[in-house]
């Protein structure tokens, strides 16, 4: 299980006013609101917490959790400037965030049996109709290299529950992954089992 979420900082500055009345209360627990109000960088903190929630939510859906919309059902606690934990639907997951001036990328942390790959990239165009496909293709290109497979034989298809899976020809590959795109940025995270040899 894995979840990630990317936030384009410049894009979110334009598209969402977190300071509008009622926004913080709809999204954040009272504990999280305290963290935001005490933070010298409230904007950064808001979107870091948000991306952590989104990453946790995707992880939770992969575990078979039921979908919901209310972000304040996910409770974040911070350990330090980069790591924290999310409580969601009775589960807990550790989350790491990478914060730059241009983006915030958060991803759940896996157990040590896996190597986790996280990659952020700039999308070639800010077009909602092509971004998803471009993000898919970037992941498949990386999978092709790491697994030594022909890229053109790889595809992503959704199962009946809407969960995306990677296929090599008609064969389903056992790769846990998560995709995200926002504004000018795309990102993926995936898990690679550590081989015995």
């Amino acid at each position: 299980m894995i979840g990630n979420d990317i936030i384009d900082i410049a894009y979110t500055q334009k598209s969402t006013n977190y300071q509008r009345r009622g926004f913080l209360a709809k999204v954040f627990t009272t504990y999280e609101q305290d963290i935001i109000h005490q933070s010298p960088h409230a904007f950064t903190t808001v979107w870091r917490l948000w991306s952590m929630k989104e990453a946790a939510y995707k992880w939770y859906l992969q575990k078979g959790g039921r979908p919901f919309n209310s972000p304040n059902r996910i409770a974040i606690t911070l350990r330090d400037n980069l790591t924290g934990d999310a409580q969601i639907g009775g589960f807990s997951v550790a989350i790491l965030s990478e914060l730059t001036k241009e983006y915030t990328h958060s991803y759940t942390q896996s157990s040590q049996q896996y190597i986790q790959v996280n990659e952020v990239f700039r999308l070639s165009q800010n077009n909602v109709n092509t971004q998803s496909a471009e993000t898919h293709n970037r992941l498949l290109a990386r999978i092709a290299i790491d697994w030594h497979l022909e890229e053109t034989c790889l595809s992503i298809k959704k199962d009946r529950q809407g969960k995306p899976l990677i296929y090599f020809h008609a064969q389903k590959l056992d790769i846990h992954f998560s995709l995200s795109h926002h504004g000018d940025f795309g990102a993926f995270s995936f898990l690679q089992a550590i081989s015995e040899s």
Partner: peptide
């Protein structure tokens, strides 16, 4: 995030 805006 805009879904929250719609609710508000």
């Amino acid at each position: 995030a805009n879904l929250v805006d719609i609710v508000l």
